[in-house]
Design a protein around this nucleic acid. Structure first.
Length: 207
DNA sequence: CGCGTTTGACCCGCGC
DNA sequence: GCGCGGGTCAAACGCG
Protein backbone atom coordinates (compact mmCIF):
# COMPACT_ATOMS: atom_id res chain seq x y z
CA UNK A 1 0.00 0.00 0.00
CA UNK A 2 2.24 2.71 1.21
CA UNK A 3 5.37 0.76 1.07
CA UNK A 4 5.99 1.63 -2.49
CA UNK A 5 7.85 4.76 -1.75
CA UNK A 6 9.99 2.95 0.68
CA UNK A 7 12.18 1.55 -1.96
CA UNK A 8 12.59 3.84 -4.80
CA UNK A 9 15.61 3.93 -6.94
CA UNK A 10 16.54 5.46 -10.14
CA UNK A 11 15.98 2.88 -12.84
CA UNK A 12 18.48 4.57 -15.02
CA UNK A 13 21.16 3.73 -12.55
CA UNK A 14 20.44 0.12 -12.68
CA UNK A 15 22.96 -1.39 -14.95
CA UNK A 16 22.66 -4.85 -16.28
CA UNK A 17 25.53 -7.16 -16.61
CA UNK A 18 25.59 -8.84 -19.96
CA UNK A 19 28.43 -11.21 -19.69
CA UNK A 20 31.07 -11.67 -17.05
CA UNK A 21 29.57 -14.85 -15.89
CA UNK A 22 32.18 -15.76 -13.42
CA UNK A 23 29.48 -16.37 -10.94
CA UNK A 24 28.13 -19.07 -13.06
CA UNK A 25 30.22 -21.56 -11.26
CA UNK A 26 28.39 -20.60 -8.17
CA UNK A 27 25.07 -21.50 -9.58
CA UNK A 28 26.30 -24.74 -10.83
CA UNK A 29 27.45 -25.82 -7.46
CA UNK A 30 23.89 -26.64 -6.69
CA UNK A 31 23.56 -30.36 -6.49
CA UNK A 32 21.80 -31.76 -9.43
CA UNK A 33 19.91 -34.33 -7.51
CA UNK A 34 17.10 -33.57 -5.12
CA UNK A 35 18.90 -35.38 -2.46
CA UNK A 36 20.51 -33.25 0.24
CA UNK A 37 23.99 -33.97 1.24
CA UNK A 38 23.52 -33.42 4.88
CA UNK A 39 20.72 -35.82 5.35
CA UNK A 40 22.05 -36.88 8.66
CA UNK A 41 22.05 -33.62 10.44
CA UNK A 42 21.59 -34.07 14.09
CA UNK A 43 21.08 -31.68 16.90
CA UNK A 44 22.20 -32.89 20.19
CA UNK A 45 20.33 -30.26 22.03
CA UNK A 46 19.71 -32.15 25.14
CA UNK A 47 23.00 -33.82 25.15
CA UNK A 48 24.87 -31.14 26.94
CA UNK A 49 27.96 -32.96 25.91
CA UNK A 50 29.73 -29.93 24.66
CA UNK A 51 32.53 -31.34 22.75
CA UNK A 52 33.90 -27.95 22.24
CA UNK A 53 32.76 -27.12 18.81
CA UNK A 54 31.81 -23.56 19.14
CA UNK A 55 32.23 -21.59 16.05
CA UNK A 56 32.95 -18.01 15.37
CA UNK A 57 29.26 -17.52 15.51
CA UNK A 58 29.82 -16.88 19.14
CA UNK A 59 30.80 -13.40 18.24
CA UNK A 60 27.25 -12.92 17.23
CA UNK A 61 24.98 -13.21 20.24
CA UNK A 62 22.05 -13.69 17.97
CA UNK A 63 22.96 -17.17 17.03
CA UNK A 64 21.12 -19.84 18.82
CA UNK A 65 22.85 -22.94 17.87
CA UNK A 66 26.16 -23.63 16.38
CA UNK A 67 27.05 -26.92 15.02
CA UNK A 68 29.50 -28.49 12.77
CA UNK A 69 28.66 -30.95 10.14
CA UNK A 70 30.73 -32.84 7.74
CA UNK A 71 29.17 -33.72 4.53
CA UNK A 72 30.55 -36.10 2.09
CA UNK A 73 32.65 -34.02 -0.15
CA UNK A 74 33.95 -36.94 -2.08
CA UNK A 75 31.68 -36.65 -5.00
CA UNK A 76 28.90 -35.36 -2.91
CA UNK A 77 27.14 -38.62 -2.63
CA UNK A 78 25.71 -37.49 0.61
CA UNK A 79 27.43 -39.36 3.31
CA UNK A 80 27.16 -37.09 6.23
CA UNK A 81 28.92 -38.60 9.10
CA UNK A 82 29.88 -36.59 12.07
CA UNK A 83 27.80 -33.91 13.59
CA UNK A 84 28.70 -32.05 16.64
CA UNK A 85 26.48 -29.44 17.97
CA UNK A 86 25.88 -27.44 21.01
CA UNK A 87 23.48 -24.96 22.26
CA UNK A 88 24.73 -21.50 22.53
CA UNK A 89 23.87 -20.20 25.89
CA UNK A 90 24.31 -16.67 24.75
CA UNK A 91 20.94 -16.78 23.18
CA UNK A 92 18.37 -14.68 24.84
CA UNK A 93 15.28 -13.10 23.58
CA UNK A 94 16.30 -9.54 23.32
CA UNK A 95 16.03 -8.39 19.86
CA UNK A 96 16.75 -4.81 20.58
CA UNK A 97 13.91 -2.76 19.29
CA UNK A 98 11.38 -4.09 21.68
CA UNK A 99 9.35 -6.07 19.23
CA UNK A 100 8.61 -9.12 21.22
CA UNK A 101 6.30 -10.59 18.68
CA UNK A 102 9.00 -10.29 16.17
CA UNK A 103 11.37 -12.05 18.43
CA UNK A 104 9.01 -14.88 18.84
CA UNK A 105 8.59 -15.33 15.18
CA UNK A 106 11.95 -14.45 13.88
CA UNK A 107 14.01 -15.63 16.76
CA UNK A 108 14.13 -19.17 15.54
CA UNK A 109 17.54 -19.09 14.15
CA UNK A 110 19.83 -21.94 13.56
CA UNK A 111 23.33 -21.68 12.32
CA UNK A 112 25.57 -24.51 11.47
CA UNK A 113 28.75 -24.94 9.66
CA UNK A 114 29.08 -27.59 7.07
CA UNK A 115 32.09 -28.85 5.39
CA UNK A 116 31.10 -29.05 1.82
CA UNK A 117 32.30 -28.20 -1.58
CA UNK A 118 29.01 -26.90 -2.66
CA UNK A 119 27.71 -23.58 -1.50
CA UNK A 120 24.04 -24.27 -1.33
CA UNK A 121 22.82 -27.55 -0.09
CA UNK A 122 19.49 -28.79 -1.15
CA UNK A 123 17.64 -29.49 2.03
CA UNK A 124 14.46 -30.45 0.33
CA UNK A 125 12.90 -27.03 0.42
CA UNK A 126 12.64 -24.70 -2.44
CA UNK A 127 14.68 -21.57 -1.95
CA UNK A 128 14.67 -18.42 -3.94
CA UNK A 129 17.69 -16.24 -3.89
CA UNK A 130 16.96 -12.64 -3.13
CA UNK A 131 20.25 -11.10 -2.24
CA UNK A 132 23.95 -11.36 -2.22
CA UNK A 133 26.41 -9.34 -0.24
CA UNK A 134 30.05 -9.27 0.52
CA UNK A 135 30.60 -9.13 4.22
CA UNK A 136 33.37 -7.52 6.13
CA UNK A 137 35.05 -10.41 7.82
CA UNK A 138 34.66 -12.63 4.91
CA UNK A 139 36.13 -12.20 1.49
CA UNK A 140 33.46 -14.44 0.12
CA UNK A 141 29.96 -13.45 -0.71
CA UNK A 142 26.99 -14.13 1.46
CA UNK A 143 23.84 -15.31 -0.23
CA UNK A 144 20.34 -14.76 1.00
CA UNK A 145 17.52 -17.14 0.27
CA UNK A 146 13.85 -17.18 1.04
CA UNK A 147 11.62 -20.16 1.10
CA UNK A 148 9.59 -19.89 -2.04
CA UNK A 149 6.64 -21.70 -0.60
CA UNK A 150 3.61 -19.54 -0.28
CA UNK A 151 3.16 -18.12 3.16
CA UNK A 152 6.48 -19.40 4.35
CA UNK A 153 8.80 -16.69 5.55
CA UNK A 154 11.78 -18.80 6.38
CA UNK A 155 15.07 -17.29 5.35
CA UNK A 156 18.40 -18.82 4.87
CA UNK A 157 21.84 -17.31 4.72
CA UNK A 158 24.70 -19.10 3.13
CA UNK A 159 28.28 -18.03 3.22
CA UNK A 160 31.67 -19.55 2.93
CA UNK A 161 33.83 -19.55 5.94
CA UNK A 162 36.33 -16.79 5.47
CA UNK A 163 39.09 -18.71 7.16
CA UNK A 164 38.34 -22.10 5.89
CA UNK A 165 36.77 -22.07 2.50
CA UNK A 166 36.06 -25.73 2.84
CA UNK A 167 33.28 -24.85 5.22
CA UNK A 168 29.93 -23.36 4.46
CA UNK A 169 28.04 -21.50 7.13
CA UNK A 170 24.34 -21.84 6.76
CA UNK A 171 21.90 -19.92 8.89
CA UNK A 172 18.23 -20.66 8.93
CA UNK A 173 15.84 -18.11 10.27
CA UNK A 174 12.31 -19.04 11.04
CA UNK A 175 10.42 -22.26 10.91
CA UNK A 176 8.73 -23.71 7.92
CA UNK A 177 4.99 -23.77 8.19
CA UNK A 178 4.79 -26.51 5.67
CA UNK A 179 6.47 -29.73 4.92
CA UNK A 180 9.36 -30.16 2.67
CA UNK A 181 8.39 -30.96 -0.88
CA UNK A 182 10.77 -33.84 -0.65
CA UNK A 183 9.57 -34.82 2.74
CA UNK A 184 8.13 -38.03 1.50
CA UNK A 185 11.46 -39.19 0.26
CA UNK A 186 13.37 -38.35 3.34
CA UNK A 187 10.87 -39.49 5.88
CA UNK A 188 11.83 -42.96 5.04
CA UNK A 189 15.53 -42.53 5.44
CA UNK A 190 15.64 -39.84 8.03
CA UNK A 191 13.62 -41.51 10.65
CA UNK A 192 13.18 -39.17 13.54
CA UNK A 193 15.60 -36.55 12.49
CA UNK A 194 13.88 -35.10 9.53
CA UNK A 195 14.70 -31.49 9.04
CA UNK A 196 11.34 -30.12 9.72
CA UNK A 197 11.12 -31.77 13.00
CA UNK A 198 14.53 -31.21 14.32
CA UNK A 199 14.30 -27.70 13.23
CA UNK A 200 11.22 -26.94 15.19
CA UNK A 201 11.91 -29.29 17.94
CA UNK A 202 15.37 -28.20 18.68
CA UNK A 203 14.45 -24.60 18.46
CA UNK A 204 11.54 -24.91 20.73
CA UNK A 205 13.75 -26.47 23.24
CA UNK A 206 16.35 -23.85 22.91
CA UNK A 207 13.93 -21.09 23.56
C1' DC B 1 6.66 -17.11 -22.08
C1' DG B 2 7.42 -17.81 -17.28
C1' DC B 3 10.20 -18.32 -13.47
C1' DG B 4 14.33 -17.96 -10.97
C1' DT B 5 18.70 -15.50 -10.60
C1' DT B 6 21.50 -11.46 -10.67
C1' DT B 7 22.81 -7.15 -8.93
C1' DG B 8 23.01 -2.36 -7.58
C1' DA B 9 20.48 0.69 -4.74
C1' DC B 10 18.14 1.77 -0.70
C1' DC B 11 17.03 1.42 4.28
C1' DC B 12 17.91 0.54 9.09
C1' DG B 13 20.38 -0.27 13.25
C1' DC B 14 24.55 0.00 15.84
C1' DG B 15 28.97 1.67 17.15
C1' DC B 16 32.05 5.37 17.59
C1' DG C 1 25.51 13.06 14.58
C1' DC C 2 27.93 10.39 11.25
C1' DG C 3 29.65 6.40 9.11
C1' DC C 4 29.72 1.55 8.43
C1' DG C 5 27.88 -2.81 7.77
C1' DG C 6 24.26 -5.82 7.08
C1' DG C 7 19.80 -6.97 5.09
C1' DT C 8 16.15 -6.42 1.61
C1' DC C 9 13.97 -4.92 -2.64
C1' DA C 10 12.83 -4.90 -7.32
C1' DA C 11 14.01 -4.28 -12.30
C1' DA C 12 16.57 -6.56 -15.76
C1' DC C 13 18.47 -10.64 -17.49
C1' DG C 14 18.98 -15.52 -18.72
C1' DC C 15 17.61 -20.11 -19.15
C1' DG C 16 14.37 -23.90 -19.74
Amino acid sequence: MSMLNKFRRDPSKVRRKTNGDEEEAEKRSIPSGPNPLHNSLMFDIDGGGNNGFIEEETSSPKSIISSETFTGESGGSGSATTTLSRKDSTFDCKHRGGKESETKEMGRRVAFRTRSKIDVMDDGYKWRKYGKKSVKNNSNKRNYYKCSSEGCVVKKRVERDGEDAAYVITTYEGVHNHESPSHVYYSDMVLSYDHDQWNQHSLLQSI
